[in-house]
């Protein structure tokens, strides 16, 4: 489908602004909770948890767009994929910043130690590094310049998501319910791809 034809579809001009605004809602909600003093006695920890959860949710949403497009036949899903990926990076960056500033108070030696000595932090950091690499190479020019390698590089989104779920499961202490939930969704999304790949090459 040409882009001229897609522009002609009613409502499509609103798609991106709508998704853009929706992606900012969790952040707006956090600002509201800050303003309303609703984060409880340990707001730094609360913000770390909330931004971490939204990073993982957006990552899973991003991963669901290609299957949704394939199952529904609607191209709109893929049109917002890059934006969803960049918002994932955006929330991951806030999550990281909250940790550096509010939890570790910019004590650089402590930050360095934590990144290598706490396994759950290392997992999150590895995931963040992947997201940054994907973000930097997400421009149209990069897609063109990198050709086949672009696709290869961007498959790193799968390990990024897996690392995110491992990061989460190592944080949980007595009940793995949350990790099971996110892990199942991720398994479904990756399983779908595996199934398509197997049935296609067969």
């Amino acid at each position: 489908m040409t882009s001229a034809a897609s522009r002609a579809r009613p409502g499509l001009g609103l798609l991106k602004p709508a998704v853009f605004s929706a992606s900012l809602l969790p952040l707006a909600w956090l600002f509201w909770r800050i303003a309303a003093n609703d984060l409880g006695p340990d707001p730094a920890q609360e913000l770390a948890i909330a931004t971490g959860e939204w990073t993982l949710r957006l990552l899973l949403i991003t991963l669901s767009l290609t299957p949704l497009r394939q199952l529904s036949g609607r191209p709109e899903f893929v049109r917002v994929r890059r934006m969803a990926g960049l918002f994932t990076l955006f929330y991951a960056a806030i999550h990281f910043f909250v940790w550096m500033s509010l939890l570790l108070a910019f004590r650089w030696s402590a930050i360095g130690e934590e990144l290598v000595e706490r396994p759950f932090i290392s997992m999150g950091f590895a995931s963040l590094l992947i997201l940054i690499a994907l973000g930097i190479t997400s421009t149209r020019a990069m897609v063109r310049r990198m050709g086949k390698n672009w696709k290869r590089l961007h498959r790193l989104i799968y390990p990024a998501a897996i690392l995110g779920v491992i990061h989460l499961s190592w944080i949980l202490r007595t009940d793995l319910g949350e990790a099971v939930l996110y892990g199942s969704i991720l398994t479904l999304l990756l399983g779908y791809r595996l199934w398509r790949w197997l049935t296609r090459s067969a």
């Binding site: 800050i34 003093n37 984060l39 409880g40 006695p41 340990d42 707001p43 730094a44 920890q45 913000l47 509010l102 939890l103 108070a105 402590a110 130690e113 934590e114 000595e117 706490r118 396994p119 759950f120 190592w170 944080i171």
Partner: peptide, 23 residues
């Protein structure tokens, strides 16, 4: 002696607000 999940050299004395954090 750090815990594998949390470093133990400082603590957040509660309650905190974002603008007055007692570490």
């Amino acid at each position: 002696v750090h815990h594998p999940r949390w470093r133990q050299d400082t603590e957040r004395r509660l309650p905190q607000t974002l603008f007055s954090r007692q570490i």
